[in-house]
């Protein structure tokens, strides 16, 4: 979509299967509000980044085209920040989470490559996040993700995630989920 994926060697069928299962599990944990277990799937050095998308002319691009690492973002988080977000979800006084938001995360277009860093994969995927709140609120966000997933002693861990949505204006009031 926006980022030209570098040419990297393709992971094996077995690795692709394992990495897909990792992403699917992650999506299910989020749908089931198992945030602490979700945090366990993340590398302690995680960079979880969802830049704001800016509507710019082609001859006037930002550093990365439609986004820029120094510009505003939806998420530009490290582990501490993600833990804080989870902590808010867990407060009994998170009024806007009760009744609960009902989530479905759909992951598709999974491709896996061998990243240049040791024991690391570059995994591309697309997602659809559907949330419903109250009786009739429904929000759908979709986009593309570029992940770095590392094999560690504790199993596969998500080390980096870049989330790109096509929208320059978010069509809903918030993103009270992870993507």
């Amino acid at each position: 979509m926006f980022t030209k994926t570098p040419d990297l060697p393709i992971a094996s069928m077995e690795e692709l299967f394992e990495l897909s299962a990792f992403l699917h599990k992650e999506a299910r944990l989020l749908d089931e509000e198992r945030f602490e277990e979700w945090l366990e799937m993340l590398h302690e050095e995680i960079h979880y980044w969802m830049p704001g998308i800016e509507n710019r002319r082609r001859e006037n691009p930002l550093k990365e085209g439609f986004y820029d690492k120094d510009h505003m973002a939806y998420f530009d988080d490290r582990m501490r920040d993600l833990q804080r977000r989870v902590a808010r979800f867990r407060q009994p006084s998170a009024w806007a989470e009760n009744p609960a938001t009902r989530n479905v995360h759909i992951i598709s277009n999974v491709e896996a490559f061998i990243a240049p860093e040791a024991d690391t994969y570059m995994v591309c995927s697309t997602f659809t996040s559907i949330r419903s709140r109250g009786l009739d609120e429904e929000y759908v966000i979709y986009g593309r993700r570029y992940d770095r997933i590392q094999r560690t002693e504790g199993g596969l861990k998500l080390l980096k995630r870049l989330i790109l949505i096509p929208n320059a204006t978010l069509s809903c009031k918030n993103i009270n989920t992870f993507l």
Binding site: D70, A73, Y74, D76, D81, R84, R88, W95, K173, N174
Partner: peptide, 27 residues
């Protein structure tokens, strides 16, 4: 400056932990 960029976003933005509860009320 960088800390403020991230901090404002973490608290008061569509993903901000404060703003989330505002939106619901105003709507």
């Amino acid at each position: 400056k960088e800390m403020w960029r991230k901090g404002a976003m973490m608290t008061f933005s569509p993903t901000g932990v404060f703003e989330m509860d505002d939106g619901e009320n105003w709507e």
